[in-house]
Amino acid sequence: MSILSKVLFGVGIIQLLHAGFSSYEFHQLLKSSTNINESSNEQKLYQLPNDIKLEVFISLAILTVSIFLSFNKLKYYPINNKNDEIITEGEYLSNIQMSKASNVDNLVGSDPTGYITYLPNMVDIQAKRKEVAEYLKTI
């Protein structure tokens, strides 16, 4: 959630609470000053003021904007990240086509089937031992 989104969300919530309080005060005043037996024509005169209605609609608009602004474009950090590069495809949602979804794994260097391919039974132990021995020689 970006800072702008958080600020707008705060402003929207405060505005909505303010509208709620204004509406509450208005109805309390209405209860104390009007007669229950008044005709419906007279009661229509006591509708919620337009400024409170407007405040509610504006606050809802601000809150909606803040929620949509809270979504950032998806970013990925490659596993072997030497240059501190961040990969992005410029999209807010993940593509559901498997051919496209695996693009991200390839770019990031992640192996989605790693939990199987790196099981001890699936790994060539001899080759790994040789690799480690060569690595230790270089130290």
């Binding site: 559901i96 086509q97 979804a101």
Partner: peptide, 8 residues
């Protein structure tokens, strides 16, 4: 080509 990624 119709295979979908359930995670996504």
């Amino acid at each position: 080509s119709q295979v979908k990624s359930s995670t996504n």
